[in-house]
């Protein structure tokens, strides 16, 4: 190419960024809680930052303080203890996808997350962030729901465990107390053993998409009878939900005797699909029914 120098002097300008936000980087978990307690009003934690940064850019978060978590390696591991697999809240999705332990113990769980975001986002996004961001579309939550996972919640002086099905109270509302964080996720090591499994995440394309709806299921059928069934859905309510009523109806039924009108009846009590920019209510509802039917007849 020709070298044509424009007659005007080109310079590198280092843009003066005016940052009004406060950031904290505690050295340890203990310091984290101390820092957190000192901050009065609203504040956010930054784990992988893949949700938070978007919210900052969109102006949804203005000048609330941000506390970094991502360097606290004690919350970043996958291990087995007693009958549980424990996954630290700061574990990234790529660590989950690469874990040998999960490959052996919870392969369905691991495989189902392959469609999470993109390889780039997988390396930074954490599972704690996915749960605590509180989006109805969070990929990991329907899976954790059917695996009967529990969350370990940490605060300065207390450690408590709650089933993930009790964690959400409404849209972006949780039982988390002030100055409490998600420390780890506990999954029974045999949570998926002996079950037939099902997971579908539906979106506008095959990769890098937000779920229009997601459905996860486990079932045990013997002699055509449904002995056990666990179903959970995402993007169909204000937060991902277990379909306890549908499960109850299906339990102990013969597969060929299921009346889908009844399934729909119970389903309607448990999901509230909406029409938005991404999809339609009717579509979400109909696909949910279709997938449940396919799973049961599989």
């Amino acid at each position: 190419m020709l070298d044509i120098n424009c007659q005007y002097k080109s310079v590198e300008v280092s843009g003066k960024k005016e940052i009004n936000m406060k950031f904290y980087k505690p050295k340890s978990l203990l310091e984290l809680f101390e820092t957190s307690e000192k901050i009065e009003g609203k504040k956010y934690f930054l784990a992988g930052g893949t949700d938070i940064n978007v919210q900052i850019k969109n102006g949804m978060i203005k000048d609330e303080p941000i506390i970094f978590l991502n360097h606290l390696t004690e919350l970043k591991n996958i291990l087995q203890s007693d009958n549980h697999i424990i996954i630290g809240a700061l574990t990234s999705f790529s660590e989950i996808l690469e874990s040998e332990l999960l490959k052996n113990k919870l392969p369905f769980f691991q495989n189902s997350l392959k469609n999470f975001a993109s390889p780039l986002i997988q390396t930074t996004a954490t599972i704690g962030g996915n749960i605590a961001n509180g989006s109805p579309t969070a990929d990991i939550v329907p899976l954790l729901l059917i695996l009967d996972a529990k969350l370990k919640l940490f605060s300065k002086s207390k450690l408590r465990e709650v089933p993930i099905s009790e964690f959400y109270l409404g849209y972006k509302k949780f039982i988390l107390k002030r100055n409490e964080i998600i420390g780890a996720v506990l999954i029974p090591e045999n949570a998926e053993t002996g079950y037939e499994t099902f997971y579908k995440k539906i979106g506008s394309r095959k990769a890098l998409y937000i779920a229009k709806l997601a459905i996860a299921g486990l079932k045990k059928i013997s002699n055509n009878k449904i002995e056990e069934i666990k179903l959970a859905v995402g993007s169909l309510n204000e937060y991902p939900r277990r379909l306890f009523k549908v499960e109850e109806y299906l339990k102990n039924k013969l597969v060929n005797e299921i009346d889908f009108a009844d399934v729909e009846h119970f389903l309607q009590k448990e999901i509230t699909p909406i029409t938005d920019l991404r999809s339609d209510k009717e579509y979400r509802y109909r696909v949910c029914i279709n997938l449940i039917r396919t799973f049961l007849n599989q």
Binding site: S204, K206, A207
Partner: peptide
């Protein structure tokens, strides 16, 4: 197939989160 720009009642898409370009997987 998939590029969807305007939805009656909801208006125009705002970015690539909503406007579905195909990825290499598609």
């Amino acid at each position: 197939l998939c590029e969807f720009f305007y939805k009656p009642g909801y208006g125009r898409m705002h970015g690539f989160t909503d406007y579905a370009l195909p990825t290499t997987m598609d």
